[in-house]
Computed example of a mutant assay.
Amino acid sequence: MARHTSPEITEEHEFPDNHLAMTLFGEQNSNLKVLPENLNLKVTNRGNIARFKGSQNDVDIAKDVLTYLYNTLKDGAQNIEPQDVLSAIRFAKKNLYKTGKTTTMTDEETRPSQVIKLSKRDIKARTPNQAIYIEALHKSDMIFGMGPAGTGKTYIAVAKAVSLYEKGEVEKMIFCRPAVEAGEKLGFLPGDLKEKTDPYLAPIYDALYDFLGAERTENLLAKKAIEIAPLAFMRGRTLSQACVVLDEAQNTTSAQMKMFLSRMGDGSKMIINGDPHQIDLLPNQISGLKEADAILKDIKEVAFVEFDHNDVVRHTLVAKILRAYDQSSHGY
């Protein structure tokens, strides 16, 4: 039986402002090259005119993506990077799946508009699930972000904590994680527990330095407005007027997760992130993250957001590598 394929079409789209068009297409057409890498079509350009050849759906998505990004330049954006094109493709594909339409990126209700506003810069959603996550962070006081590494969970959570602190909605930011690491025994490392775990908290320090600068971060640490500590340091405390982020939550035990969640005090927001498929606990231990997902999912005030490999915002090769590992049955 013959395999049905969508007929190829050829369409052109002109972008009136030549300067903006060149910025949109990128240096040596670097932005245009992202389109055929992620859609089944060919793209060429002649001056300020882009020419598309492929299926109707993919051509519509490509035109929609470029039109959306062109409009951001008209609205004042200074530059477009290949990662911006990839992000827009993700949103356009999601909109097509949800609505059956392809020209939705310019609609107010479907374009990637979820933002965390900081004094230095704004953090925008780069994937549809990041947009859902940011919306949950705005609306809920307890949020679980679940999915693979590289999807922006930690970075966005730190951004939300900084945003709440800068607006005066919380008095402190608290970041913690369990003292369990893949294949490593902390007892053999030099120093006290904080010195042992600080290297594993590097992603949180990196994000804070990015949002606040190194000097301000260190000042806030000295003032105890920022706390970065192992999860064990949370025991016996009530965490009020704080944004509390628990990272690598898949490595909490059932008792640790219950202890952590019960620390929540007045005026606090709790963000719990982890990857349920990367658990480093002993075989007979239950992951507190997986258990919380099962026990708390029907409580409407608790938000759960799931990420997948399509949300990986590191190098595009990372998503392919992670997907290949997941699909492998280790039959080598």
Rank of each mutant, 00 (worst) to 15 (best):
M1N: 04
A2Y: 01
R3Y: 14
S6C: 07
P16L: 08
H19V: 07
S30D: 11
K33N: 07
K42A: 08
G47R: 08
I49P: 01
F52G: 01
G54N: 08
D58S: 04
V59K: 01
I61V: 15
L66R: 00
T67W: 05
Y70E: 01
D75W: 00
G76F: 13
V85N: 02
F91S: 03
K93A: 11
N95S: 15
N95K: 09
T99V: 06
T102V: 09
T103P: 00
T104I: 04
M105A: 05
T106P: 01
D122I: 11
A125N: 12
P128I: 14
L137F: 10
S140W: 00
T151I: 10
G152R: 05
I156F: 02
A161G: 12
F175W: 05
F175Y: 14
P178D: 12
P178H: 06
G187M: 06
K194E: 14
E195M: 09
Y200L: 11
A202C: 02
A207F: 07
D210K: 11
D210F: 13
A214D: 03
A214C: 08
E218I: 07
A222D: 13
A222W: 02
A225C: 08
I228C: 14
A229F: 10
L231Q: 03
A232W: 10
R237Q: 08
L239R: 07
S240F: 11
V244M: 01
V245G: 00
E248I: 06
S254G: 09
A255F: 09
Q256I: 02
M257I: 06
F260H: 05
D266K: 08
D266I: 10
S268E: 13
S268F: 08
G274Y: 08
D275F: 13
I286M: 11
I286D: 13
D293F: 04
K300E: 15
E306D: 05
H309V: 07
V312G: 01
L322C: 12
A324L: 07
Y325H: 06
S328C: 02
Y332L: 09
